[in-house]
Write a protein that binds this DNA or RNA. Structure first.
Lengths: 299, 299
DNA sequence: ATGTAAATATGAAAAAGTATCATTTTTTAT
DNA sequence: ATAAAAAATGATACTTTTTCATATTTACAT
């Protein structure tokens, strides 16, 4: 009944503002679109647009279809692209989702060698998800998810890419910097700076503070890693970061990393992808470069 | 490039097991399918299937397309159905998502009058979601979400349907039944029975136990409301349920409802839907019946 | 008011795309 | 080895889509 072309026409009319403009943008005549939609209207028994002066205006049903068009057409476009990749044309993109704020710095080191090694493949990074990275992976909005918190699901594969230690970053001038390890109670009079995500996803709370039923004096959230570290350096607070990340900044900023608890908080970064894409060469290229980069960071 | 018909052919071949069978099920000839896919293979430069004896077997690319077909075709079918509803044919379905276990009993009372009042509309209830009810609503997997925990999002509308009090259900033989109100510490030697969802979504934890840093002695999870209540009646544990639900069982089982804390835990059940469907008559019919049923329960 | 330009609508014909028919090729089973 | 079953292929018929030419409606300027 409803076909891709109908969705395409609706979307293009919305984008171009008129049937005539949409037609020329689709390399068709205005007449063709008019006939095409008229036929759909006839088949479905619904009006999709009304003439409003010499423009057309979408009816409620038309608006609904437009919304579906904006949802479904990108998926078709993605299928076409993937099919071309299967064909070995090796043109396409790898869409990476990041659920790990500090990993961004690390990603930036993996991207250049990837772009060299896979010349036809573009990289696209998404950091905001309506319903979490797993849902995005599941819905084919991304191809690879970078996360410290993998969820085991049937048709997904997660691989540990590298281990890291979560440490407390403090200013070199802070008395905390003198300690060899921080205990949860030591944060009771501190301002803790974190990324703006739910505390349930912050390991400093989940793995360190909450089990000891301690809380920091203040909790402020900041988007950008650099700003957080500058704030810490200026003595405005403390933050929890991977040790390797702190190491990268210690020559630029007066920062010090201190272990959390007696044994430290140890985590892994994982990459996840759809199981069926285990064979995807570009995905595997990326992952092996990622692991490689990771081993350089940890040593 | 890729068209709905291609997805349809792939899906039907998968279902029927052969091109010939798929062709007859689609009211086409075997030749038509063969030509059609051959053309797609030519355009995209990929093989989609290989001959394996006298059967055909999907290649990796074919499997990929099949998966996309199983994802996208149902969405097209839904669009067709919705368009028919717009046309006023008034045939279709209302897909309800439930994120509220005990509400099932209440839903069962709303369904019969709805089916009478909207004779052409079927009801479909989903209770399991890959990524939560909101995501399902957003992705058009359901049309209406029933939940005690609405999330404000741009294009969604949530309406409170009815207020309820969350109470502790105990056996009439339990010493707790004698109390007028339960304090968090009273549960320290009890077995708490809940539905099997994350504690973050259980109000008895979030609103009662955790703020007081108390925990029950044991925590067991059970799927079915009836079984939970039978277990409670048998003195095997206590549970948190809406007061109206307990009232419905007190004549059948030796149960007693006790207030949680001094003021009780008060909540609302909400229904949520996509804003654009505010005009949908069947949706509104359902909601008004739901509110109506709710007011009968609370009095 | 009236003419003109800009938009959509419509009918008939041309063009393109799909499906079928008849036949061939390949494979399996007896 | 042969028959039966499935898929592939090429030519033809059929259907659908697109175009062309033209009509209709509306907005705007004079």
């Amino acid at each position: 009944m409803i076909e891709k072309i109908h969705l395409n026409i609706l979307r293009e009319i919305d984008r171009q503002g008129s049937v005539t403009a949409a037609a020329s943008s689709l390399n068709l005549t205005q007449s063709a679109l008019s006939h095409s939609i008229k036929k759909l209207e006839h088949q479905s028994g619904t009006c999709l647009w009304l003439k409003d002066g010499r423009q057309i205006r979408l009816t409620e049903a038309g608006e609904y279809l437009l919304e579906q068009a904006n949802r479904l057409l990108p998926q078709f476009e993605r299928i076409d692209e993937t099919l071309r990749q299967f064909a070995g044309n090796e043109k396409g993109s790898l869409r990476i989702g990041m659920e790990c704020h500090p990993c961004y710095q690390w990603l930036l080191k993996v991207v250049p060698p990837f772009l060299t090694q896979s010349p036809g493949i573009d990289i696209d990074v998404k950091q905001r998800f309506q319903f979490g990275g797993m849902a995005a992976l599941f819905n084919y909005d991304i191809d690879l998810l970078i996360t410290p918190d993998p969820i085991q699901k049937d048709r997904m594969v997660f691989e540990a890419v590298f281990p890291y230690e979560l440490v407390l970053v403090v200013s070199t001038t802070s008395p905390l910097g003198a300690l060899h390890q921080i205990m949860p109670a030591d944060l009771s009079d501190q301002t803790l700076l974190t990324y703006p995500v739910e505390t349930a996803r912050l390991d400093i709370f989940q793995q360190f503070l909450l089990p000891a039923k301690c809380m920091p004096r203040h909790h402020k959230t900041l988007e950008a890693t650099d700003i957080i570290l500058h704030m810490v350096a200026a003595g405005r607070g403390v933050a929890a970061m991977p040790r390797w990340l702190v190491s990268e900044y210690t020559d630029k900023l007066p920062l010090k990393a201190v272990r959390l608890g007696k044994n430290g908080v140890h985590k892994h970064i994982y990459v996840g992808y759809r199981k069926q894409e285990q064979q995807n060469r570009h995905l595997q290229t990326f992952i092996s470069l990622a692991k490689n980069q990771a081993s350089q960071l940890t040593c």
